[in-house]
């Protein structure tokens, strides 16, 4: 068809592809600012404590963010697509409990990992089906499953705990691949690359942005919106399962209160990384830097003997501050 051949028509005028170069955009980006802050915190930390600049203590510091970041990558995609999953910490509890049950039935490391991932995936499927099939708002659905999933853990465990995971299982949360490089660090790095490529370099990633900005227009454009959202819920569930494997392995025990409140830290990480809570924008590099930044802050405060609960004040302030400060500047300039 001649229609498909626009070269036949004389070009009236040329519109440039881009005005600003990608490099110029990068300099002004949220990610650059975040990186700057991370470097500053790093330097402050090294002044604050002589123990900070030590390969082993830095390696320890990564545990502050690796498990959360695994979930945060999937959560970033989900939030960009305009949905949210507040049940991730409860999924960890349910996965960990299921692993404990399998362990008591004599399951080996392989069976434990499979159980963790499968239960995580199932939880994601449950959330996803409720949201995509019944058309329910994800925030309410996952507040419900947040209670439900952890509630099942409580039913199973009560005030008890599972202990005595097999020795081989400890590798995930306590093992080292090479020198100070932990297994979790390697998983984190690989996932960062995979999620980064998926979001920024594939059709799927483009569709995620399109849905988050305008799901109706995305549907009209031939995107299978519900399917994409379902995949994202499955991914979030799977990543929560993986985090459950790592966390259970690291702690060596399961209590129903495991990972409680972690959903907040994951959401904070995603929002701090520059992902709009309203959907439609954000990047994986941003989330990676945010994860490291949060790890550094937590670790630095730990070195100064600041108790964990007080650290949460900083996390809360960061969450609000990162959005509030630029807006305050804009308002001040607006005058």
């Amino acid at each position: 068809m001649s229609l498909a051949d626009p070269d036949m028509v004389p070009a009236p005028r040329q519109i440039p592809d881009r005005l600003a170069s990608p490099a110029a955009k990068l300099l002004k980006s949220w990610e650059s600012l975040l990186l700057l802050v991370a470097v500053a915190v790093f330097i402050l930390n090294s002044f604050a404590s002589p123990y900070f600049l030590d390969a082993w203590s830095l390696s320890d510091a990564t545990f502050n963010f690796t498990e959360k970041a695994m979930i945060a990558f999937a959560m970033a995609l989900l939030i960009i697509a305009g949905e949210i999953d507040l049940s991730v910490a409860s999924i960890i509890a349910l996965c960990s409990t299921a692993m404990g049950v399998v362990m008591q039935m004599g399951g080996g490391t392989g069976a434990l990992v499979f159980t963790g991932l499968a239960v995580g995936l199932s939880c994601g499927a449950f959330n996803g089906l409720l949201v995509t099939r019944l058309g329910l708002p994800s925030i309410v659905v996952t507040i419900g499953t947040m209670s439900l999933f952890r509630g099942i853990s409580y039913i199973v465990l009560g005030d008890g705990a599972f202990r005595g995971y097999p020795e081989g299982f400890a590798w995930f949360g306590q093992g080292y691949v090479f020198w100070v490089i932990t297994v979790e660090m390697v998983i984190f790095t690989l996932l960062a690359i995979v999620f980064g490529v998926v979001l920024h370099k594939t059709n799927f990633g483009r569709q995620v942005y399109a849905i988050g900005n305008n799901s109706t227009a995305a549907l009209f454009s031939g995107i299978r919106v519900q399917r994409v959202k379902m995949i994202l819920f499955l991914l979030t569930g799977l990543m929560s399962g993986l985090a459950a494997v790592c966390l259970t392995s690291r702690l060596g025990s399961t209590r129903p209160s495991i990972a409680s409140g972690m959903e907040l830290e994951v959401v904070t990480m995603v929002v701090l990384g520059g992902v709009s809570i309203l959907g439609g924008s954000g990047s994986i590099p941003g989330v990676v830097i945010a994860a490291i930044l949060m790890g550094l802050v937590t670790f630095g405060l730990g070195l100064l003997n600041v108790p964990g609960i007080v650290m949460s004040i900083f996390i809360g302030l960061m969450l609000i501050g990162v959005i509030a400060v630029p807006r305050l500047f804009k308002m001040a300039r607006g005058k």
Partner: peptide
């Protein structure tokens, strides 16, 4: 509401159904 995704750049809108 249904046609364009106004926040996304022109080229991404054009290619969305043709990815």
């Amino acid at each position: 509401k249904q046609g364009a995704i106004t926040q996304l750049p022109i080229f991404q809108n054009v290619t969305l159904p043709s990815l």
